[in-house]
Nucleic acid binder design. Structure first.
Lengths: 199, 199
DNA sequence: CCGCTTTTAGTACCAAGTCTTAATATCTGT
DNA sequence: ACAGATATTAAGACTTGGTACTAAAAGCGG
């Protein structure tokens, strides 16, 4: 074929099939070569060649990677005691953290980041700044100035404004591109005695 | 077996091994029977009998279930536009939601639930109550009255206190066992025009 | 030492592959 | 229409990580 319509746009039977294969596996990654061969109406061998060409691992490998990846993601979410990376910390004085806003932090409807992420970043930074083994938030006054969208790189700066005994007042300001988008004032109470109790 | 000393405390070699097996798999669920046989220093067959006795599926099944479970959990987390279940909703007036505090919501150090979970429950409920296609939080005043531990069943009740044009004042109180543990006042701005922009 | 449980061993078989070689189909240009 | 290239199918040997089953050997308790 020199320039037949079909070829020119690179849609040979093979390529279409391989694309379909990818989509099929995206819908359901737990398909065996045999099942794929049936739905795509080709032989198993063809499926295997296609997998090879596209670098798609076999069912078991796919399953294993899914298990590991998802597990790690869950762990990452669960272990986020501090939301965002701690960039700088002067215990008892100030601290800076950074958080990337990703697609899964925004509301479907509006594309705006859910407020509690900024709250979490600010609050956890405020708690980290306090020079105490453990601390609890008592009161928070929060102001959202600008809506945040996916892709924003939020930089939070916390400052301890006042301390009286076990009570701290901490201000946190979050900026995106050097523009203040959020600010919060926290009243935090430190817990000097080990309070490891559960329920 | 009547009541032999060893048996009574149920620490036969076999039982100890089976417990070890479980722990080993908890640490690393991707171990083959062969690897397990090596570390426990018994034959593969013994491992298989133990798995059978304890109802532990084979490596591939374990892997598959992990993949599926974790995937679903991630999906659940991602799709949680509202934190907690919405129990009752009178659009524009009030709403009630419930949220179970689980182990992974609490800080390791203190066992106390991280503040942003309550904030998220309250905030998302407040947003849900607003009778508008989309809304944003502007200001929040938050008070944590009692620390929450794992297992708590939090009931949030939101009430729209005042509305002026596109601005709403919503109060949210969270109770655990009928005891108020948290309260928040939100100033929320509704977005009448479709603001589906990104970035 | 007998009888019982426990542990090993060995065999056949399966699923879902890999890897290799070889035979067909199917195009495609001339 | 036919040679040559490309794509598809087929077939066989081998691999992993098992299940299922049978049988032998080891331990141990009284």
């Amino acid at each position: 074929m020199v320039l037949k319509a079909g070829e020119a746009v690179s849609t040979s039977k093979k390529q279409i099939r391989q694309e379909t294969l990818l989509k099929e596996l995206e819908k359901n990654p737990f398909l065996t070569d045999e099942q794929l061969a049936n739905t795509l109406e080709v032989s198993i061998q063809t499926i295997r060649l296609d997998r090879l060409a596209k670098g798609i691992p076999e069912l078991r490998e796919r399953t294993k990677h899914m298990a590991i990846d998802a597990q790690e993601k869950l762990k990452a979410i669960a272990s986020e005691d501090i939301f965002g990376q701690l960039i700088d910390l002067e215990l008892g004085h100030s601290g800076i953290s950074m958080m990337q806003v990703t697609q899964d932090m925004v509301l479907q409807k509006t594309g705006v980041a859910r407020g509690h992420y900024m709250f979490a970043q600010a609050n956890s930074l405020a708690l980290a700044v306090i020079d105490a083994p453990a601390a609890l938030t008592g009161v928070a006054n929060v102001k959202y100035k600008v809506p945040i969208y996916s892709g924003a790189n939020l930089v939070a700066r916390a400052e301890v404004i006042r301390q009286q005994n076990d009570k701290y007042i901490v201000w946190v300001k979050i900026r995106n591109n050097n523009k203040e988008v959020f600010r919060a004032k926290f009243l935090i109470v430190s817990l000097p005695e080990e309070r490891t109790g559960q329920k």
